[in-house]
C-alpha cells in the first residue's frame, strides 16, 4: 500500500501556497495529511502535486481580541485541545478537538485540514457551524470570508474553490458560551456514529448534528421544553428528519440521544 508518485512543494508563506495552487491545476494541499495520506496510500487519491502547508511560519497561532477568536488554520488538533485561550474561552472547542482521532493523529492533523476535508462524521466542521464561525479563504485572487454554515455543501464538498486555501477561522468567544457537546462513537477516537452541539439560550436553542447527514446539520428552535419527556420527544421528532448515510434508524435514534446528552451537560455546567 504505497502512494503514487507526486511532486512536492514546500511553501513558507500563504502567498507562496496560493501561487503554487494557482499554478498547478492537479495539486492538493497537505495540511497535516492524516486523512489525505491514508487515501493516497490506498491510491484513492493521486494528486500529481502536493503543496505542504506545514512549513508556513506562524500558521498555528491563536489570538483573542475584543471577543474575536482568530485561529490560523495550521494549528494541530492537539494544540487546539491544549491551548489555554481555547480552554478558557471556548472550552467546547478544546473538548471536541480532543475527540479527533487518537493522540498521534491529533499531533499532526490540523484544524484547516479537517475543516476543508469536510468529513460528515468529523467533530470540527460541526463545531464551526455551531460557533457560527467565519472562514477566511485565500487565493491569488485575494481573500474572501464565508460563514461555516455556508461553507459546507455536501458530502466531502465545500465552497472552497480549486485555487483557495482556508487560512483563518474567526468566531466570537461569546458565541462559544452555552454550547455543549456530546457524541457516540463505537470506540473512543473513532468517527462519531452521531454527535451534537447544543446551544441553549433563554429563548432559543440551536442544534448542530454531525455523523447523521452528509454534512453538519444545523437548526434553530425556540426554547426547549424543560420537561424531560417532551424535550426528548422533540429531539426524536427532529432527528427523524435526518438523512444518515447508513444505519438510518439507529443513527436517528442516537441523534436524539446525543442532543439530550449535550443539553443535560449544559444544564449541569450552567447550574
Amino acid at each position: 500500500m504505497k502512494p503514487a508518485p507526486f511532486s512536492y512543494i514546500r511553501v513558507a508563506t500563504v502567498e507562496e501556497a496560493a501561487n503554487a495552487l494557482s499554478e498547478y491545476t492537479d495539486a492538493k494541499l497537505l495540511a497535516g495529511g492524516q486523512s489525505l495520506i491514508p487515501l493516497m496510500n490506498y491510491r484513492l487519491s493521486k494528486p500529481t502535486v502536493l503543496i505542504d502547508l506545514c512549513g508556513i511560519e506562524a500558521f498555528a497561532s491563536v489570538s483573542l481580541k475584543d471577543d474575536v477568536f482568530t485561529i490560523r488554520a495550521g494549528i494541530t488538533h492537539q494544540s487546539l485541545h491544549e491551548h489555554p485561550l481555547v480552554r478558557a474561552y471556548a472550552p467546547v472547542l478544546a473538548e471536541c478537538a480532543g475527540e479527533v482521532g487518537h493522540w498521534a493523529i491529533r499531533n499532526r492533523g490540523t484544524l484547516g485540514g479537517s475543516l476543508a476535508h469536510a468529513d460528515p462524521a468529523s467533530e470540527l466542521p460541526a463545531a464551526m457551524v455551531a460557533l457560527d464561525a467565519r472562514f477566511v479563504l485565500t487565493s491569488v485572487r485575494g481573500e474572501r470570508t464565508v460563514t461555516a454554515r455556508d461553507f459546507y455543501l455536501g458530502l466531502f464538498t465545500t465552497d472552497l474553490a480549486e485555487d483557495e486555501i482556508l487560512t483563518r477561522i474567526h468566531f466570537f468567544a461569546s458565541s462559544a458560551n452555552r454550547i455543549h457537546f456530546a457524541e457516540i462513537a463505537r470506540r473512543p477516537g473513532d468517527f462519531a456514529l452521531s454527535g451534537a452541539f447544543v446551544r441553549v439560550e433563554e429563548s432559543a436553542t440551536e442544534i448542530t448534528w454531525f455523523g447523521v447527514s452528509d454534512m453538519p446539520y444545523h437548526l434553530t428552535l425556540d426554547a426547549l421544553p424543560v420537561e424531560e419527556k417532551a424535550r426528548q420527544a422533540l429531539f426524536t421528532s427532529l432527528a427523524s428528519t435526518l438523512e444518515p448515510l447508513d444505519q438510518t434508524v439507529y443513527r436517528r435514534k442516537l441523534a436524539a440521544v446525543v442532543a439530550e446528552r449535550a443539553y443535560l451537560k449544559g444544564r449541569r455546567v450552567q447550574a
Binding site: 463505537r186 470506540r187 473512543p188
Partner: peptide, 11 residues
C-alpha cells in the same frame, strides 16, 4: 482497520 474494529485499551 477503520471498518474491521479491533479492541483497544479503553474497551
Amino acid at each position: 482497520l477503520a471498518d474491521y474494529l479491533l479492541p483497544v485499551a479503553t474497551e
